[in-house]
Amino acid sequence: MLELLRKMIIGREIDEQTLVQKKKGNIPGALHPAIGQEAVSIGAGAALRDSDTITTTHRGITDYIGKGGDVRAVVCEVFGRANGCSKGRGGHYFVNDPKVGVLGGTGVVGGTMAMAAGHALAFQTLGDDRVALSHFGDGAVNTGMFHEALNLASIWKLPVIFLCQNNEWALTVHVSKHLSCEHVVDRAKGYGMPGVIVDGNDVMAVYEAVSQAASRARNGDGPSLIEAKTYRIPGFATSDVGGYRSEDEVERWKAKDPITMFESVLLKKKIADSKEIESVKAAAKKEVGEAVLFALESPHPDPSTVFDYLYA
């Protein structure tokens, strides 16, 4: 349980510390922090085995951490360094760590849903009991790919879990303005798969829902759709200038911070005392801080290697 807390804090710290570095001008491009959504990423990752796989999004760093991705490798990648998980080719968009089944991120909304189904097709064809999980946001459910991937996964009974992190905002458009139904899972019936709503700020609830979907997939019963209701506390990216949602709304969700909520659970159930929690926090902060320093001192890719990894 403390491990779940630790990973949520690692994800939070990577976002917060890289935002600081971004402001200092040490990181090129934009960042897409997932602050407020950590319970989905970490709960989902904890419910899967190392050999299972996930695909994720442009907001995928904490998903990667949840699945066991290496902290230093992703931090170095955010800084575009040669020792990053994409050797400086992809940045935060393309998080990956095949050793723990993260393959991987994308810069395209809805871009990796069919890819997860493809992982699952490989597992099914090879006859092993691995499962694949696709993380995506509420914006992605209106792409054609959502329809195609869920339908195909259903008719082929693929061992895949579609996990929608409904953070209420597709960039600056509220879910009530872009979704044709009340809940994303209302669409599950049409694809002949179970659709489950879960409190996306409750890491244990996410863990339970993903565990059930994983065991269903492992048993050969096919895909599931899970909708984790959560909220994106920061802007859609570091380029966000705001003006589309109220401070009140953000404050209401801050009061439901998944990390604080989980700390209360741990204290209440006497799984950990406040001293232990503080020590986990301090260690996580230190680990990420060291990774940031390590990244800042790491070399940029050698220009002569620009074509490396284009073709196998």
Partner: peptide
């Protein structure tokens, strides 16, 4: 039918599935 399949008329997903399956060893 496990190795030769009829697919739905979903060209984008068919391509994405091939990418994912290829990554995982097929």
């Amino acid at each position: 039918s496990s190795r030769v399949k009829d697919s739905p008329i979903s060209e984008a997903a068919m391509t994405g599935v091939a990418i994912g399956a290829a990554m995982m060893g097929l």
